[in-house]
Design a protein around this nucleic acid. Sequence first.
RNA 1: GCCGAAGUGGCGGAAUUGGCAGACGCGACGGUCUCAAACACCGUUGGGCGUUAAGCCCGUGCCGGUUCGAGUCCGGCCUUCGGCACCA
Length: 812
Amino acid sequence: MADRYDPHALEPKWRARWDAGGLDRVHDDDERPPYYALTMFPYPSGELHTGHWYIIAPSDTAARFRRMQGHNVLFPIGFDAFGLPAENAAIERGVDPKEWTYGNIDRMRQQLRMMGASFDWEREIVTCDPDYYRWTQWWFLKLYERGLAYRAEAAANWCPGCRTVLANEQVLDGLCERSDDPVERRFLTQWFFRITDYAEELLDFDGLDWPEPVTTMQRNWIGRSEGATLRFPVDVEGVDEPLPVFTTRPDTVYGATFMVLAPEHELVERITTGDQRETVEAYVAATSRVTEVERLSTEREKTGVFTGAYAINPFNGERIPIWIADYVLVTYGTGAIMAVPAHDERDFAFARDHGLDVVPVFDHCDIDVSEPLEAAFTEGGAMINSGPFDGTPADEAIPAVVGHAEAEGFGMGAVTYRLRDWLISRQRYWGTPIPMIHCDTCGVVPVPESDLPVVLPDDVHFEPTGQSPLTQIEEWVNVDCPQCSATARRETDTLDTFMCSSWYQMRYVDPHNPERPFSAETMRQWLPVDLYTGGAEHAVMHLLYTRFFWKAARDMGIVEGDEPMKRLFNQGVILGPDGNRMSKSRGNVVAPDDLVERHGADAFRCQLMFIGPWDQGGPYNPSGMPGIVRWLNRLWSVATEPPPDAGDGSGSRELVAATQRTIRDVTSDLEGFRFNTAIARLMELTTTLARARESGGVDTATWERSVETLILLVAPLAPHIAEELWERRGGAFSVHQQDWPAFDESLVVEETVEIVVQVNGKVRDRVTLPVDASEDDALARALASERVANWVEGKEPRRVIYVPGKLLNIVV
RNA sequence: GCCGAAGUGGCGGAAUUGGCAGACGCGACGGUCUCAAACACCGUUGGGCGUUAAGCCCGUGCCGGUUCGAGUCCGGCCUUCGGCACCA
């Protein structure tokens, strides 16, 4: 008897040999067609958890599968190494962020290697390495040169817990995405990227193979609204320019009975009348104290106050009051609205609460518009109370009104987006320094490219101040102005870490290039990414930013093509055995290292892939492990112990067909990332082989070919055991460099087929027929069956449905 | 409230285009081997009726529809999970 399957001995052995043999090294001059498979790189939090395994192990299987299919596959890994946890560790425990981060990376690198993933470690990138962030800074300068980076004062989202501002995308329900602290508004001068310049193009997902939920979320996030900007003259001395408002319903303009400005609107101060000043100022002050969470609540009563001023509706010359209310947001549209209570629910609620007029300007088949309205209605038949437009049907109303506004010069068609520019400043230390210098005479001056990188200083004092710790390092901050050489100061904010990950996929193609982020040749060879795998939680952050980055780079002539990732696949979320998110407080965390120690990496990889569809995620329960372990043991057994006697060949044909069917099914399953069913099919073939060995009848050559095929099909899923068995059977190093088995349809063709016989749609019997049997033959055979005859009871078939190869249904 | 995904045995899940519901695995039960075990091996395992048996009936969240035939298609609900939410 051959020795037993011992993953603990063979897994480290093979990883060492793969390393020594450079098996996973990717070469640019390889002649096979290139294929770029990218999996989202981890943050070096300290430990590899089950979630990491769930993202990476199946991604590795997909990459290995592609390789065996004849592609030169780039499958790189690195670490998204800047970020708050390192700095928080510094503040809380006094450890150095750099040491903490690199210590974690060392540990996680070891854990990743244990997985047996086919990463080319020579291409590893770490975003906090100066060799990497030098190029992050370079990108900043390029964006600045192109006018896509700018500095502005704005109401920013301030997270008191993280002590920094956040991008809009990092605020969920008014709470910080990281720390769940309620976000505050602070007016600060910050750096932004003009992602809104690309809003329209970012809505176009043509030709992208991306999951529909992600494209939907991005579309919603960008939030394109079509409508018009209308300008209302303001009836206040000294305010000559009209007040612009954006509306999606210009056709309701005759129903505008008041205007509302956001409390932060710059006009508020100028138009407020003396007797209203106190009220308005109190309201503005109160608004600034309301948290974003409260302000965003739709449940809340709509508060607001009158400014005392009036605007003129340019369509009918009516004087309407101007109010301020915090349900109008200063950051959207023009920060001001015309309120049409009859046809907008929010305006209706406000009018009702504050006793303002409601004038319907559309009729409605179910509503008597001569009576006071009980609620706003948004769909109407034709315009009323609208002067010359009365009678215009709803579907012609908008173009008619906008056309009039354009002709008269008080408005025009307009498109507005919900998307805001990307705020990239962070008041934190552990990030990429923004390569800018503030000079009293020259203003804001970029650091010359030749001076990059601007290296993050060591030995920093961490105090929770709300300013970047960099501000306190005088010798770092003080610098000569590159233009006038006068003493100037460095920018002390650092870059949002999403900037590091917006271009990392580009660096992998040429990771050691000291001259530029990557060469044009490697860019053309590898980019864009063919397959990107990772979590859907990045749908409107990372994945939107990286698309913006790519398009900007394209417009600078640095990359070619319109999109950075052709195909995106989101795996689901892996949960604890109790069906909840794994967390220490719940005590449902499954540690991968324990499972690998007990059963080996192959077993753990396979179990994660076996539990269900990859995109579905779901509970992970180690109790399923025995099934996988039993399978691997059986695989070991059939591969190392052939049948005791040479068979006579009577069972060969069936084994060949079963093997071929497995090739066919596993190939299509792996193409569609259906790892669970692929493993099920491989288990079946393993069992088939074990049974065939038991019963004899399979000739030696057929047996050997079938076992060999099975090992090849297993290789992408369980790389270590496949390699060991391949070697033991005399295969050349390495199993992972073999060709994927080809499916031969002619070997599975059967002469006879079993078809189901139904009577009135219910299965009553099964008969075996030649594959090419005619309907008449099939019917004759079916009626000959006693069981069928009992149900037909001599009645004449009213109708017969025959699906060749599948079923025969007799309707009586 | 709006958008999206999903509801199938005790459990995880299978089921090209409508065509044998429950593949594969866990667990459970029974057995084999063993002094005893095991990550070893064999068998049974949706529910009900049927003494055994042949067999029959019911069964994919709920109600209705289309069809010779529905887990799959259509209409209406219910539940769960994700996402968005005063965006004019």
